[in-house]
Amino acid sequence: MNAMSPPAPTLATKTASGGEILLRLSGVRKAYRGAVAVESVDLEIRRGEFFTMLGPSGSGKTTTLRLIAGFEQPDAGTIELDGVDMARTAPFDRNVNTVFQDYALFPHMSVAENVAYGLKAKRVAAAECRDRVAEALRMVQLADFAGRLPAQLSGGQRQRVGLARAIVNRPGLLLLDEPLGALDLKLRQDMQLELKHIQEQVGITFLYVTHDQEEALSMSDRIAIFNRGEIEQIGTPEEVYERPTTPFVANFVGSSSIVKRRGRRFMLRPEKVQVLPVGERAAFGFHGEEGRLEDRVYLGMFTKYVVRLGDGTKIVAVQPNAEGATGQLEKQRGEPVLVVWNPETAWPV
C-alpha cells in the first residue's frame, strides 16, 4: 500500500548544502481549461530543509503544492519523492501531509480524534496511537485541549491542531499552505518562530507556501520565488534579497528603487541609501547625487524618504531613528538633498 517507507527522521544540519534530495519536480505543468497555472516548474528540495515557495496570488505556488499533495494531477512532468515518481499516486498513498490554510479540521470530532484520524486510517495500534496523539498535542502546547471540539478553539489553537494532525503521521514531507494567513500579525510572528522551532525538533522537511516575503525571509533555509507559473529564482534568504536575478524578484522580495546608469539597471535597497543635506561630503568610495525631497514619512522605528533625482528617477531611502543617527534630516518637501550609496550595493538586474 505505502510505496515508500517513512524516512528516518534526520536531525542533520538543516542548511547542509548538497544534502540528499528528498523531492524533485521536473517539468511540472498544470493548466485548468486552458488557463495555465503552472507553466514549467523544476525544483529540488533537500531532506530536512525548510523550503518556502513565495509569490503573489496566482503565481502557481499553491497549485504546485496541491500537485505535490496529490489533490491535482499534473499535465506533464514528474514529482519524485525519495526517487519514486508519484505524479499519478493518490493522496492517501503519498508519504506527505498537509496543513491547510483554513485548517480543514473535522467539526464533529474532538481535537484528539482529529489528530488520531491519520493514524487510525493507517491502522496504528490503539496504544501507540494514544501515545503519539498525546505527544503531538504536547508539542503544539494543546495537551489540555484534547477533548474540545474545533468550534471551541481560537484561530491560533485551530492552526496548532492542524499542525499536530499532520506531524503526528511523521510524513517524509510536510506541506504548509499559507498556514498563518488567517491569523493576526502578532500571533503570526509568534507562530513563525514556533513553527521553525517545531521543524528543528521533529526534523521533518517543511515545504511552505506564502505570499508574505517577510515570513519567507525569516523562516526559510531556501526560497523559490514564483511568478506567472514559473520559478524566477531559488536561493537562501540572503541570496534572493541581496542578489536577485530578475527585476521581479528585486521588487517582490523587499522593496527597491531601480536606477539606470551607463545603460544598465541597478537595484538599490532603501536601507542602503543615505539621505544627507546638500553640501555634506559622501564617505570615500560612495556615490552621491542631488535630488529633491518628495516625501518624508515617520514610521516609528524608521523614517522613510522619497527623493526625485534630476533625471526623474525615484529613490526610496529608509533610515533607522536610532540615538544620534542622521535619521532626523530636518528638510521640508521640495528642498534639495543629497542621496548617497555604496556602488557595490547597487545590484544589476
Binding site: A69, G70, A90, F92, T98, G118, R165, A166
Partner: peptide, 10 residues
C-alpha cells in the same frame, strides 16, 4: 475530502 485523503483515508 482533501484533508481526509491527505491523512491516508480512502
Amino acid at each position: 475530502f482533501e484533508a481526509s485523503g491527505d491523512l491516508g483515508a480512502r
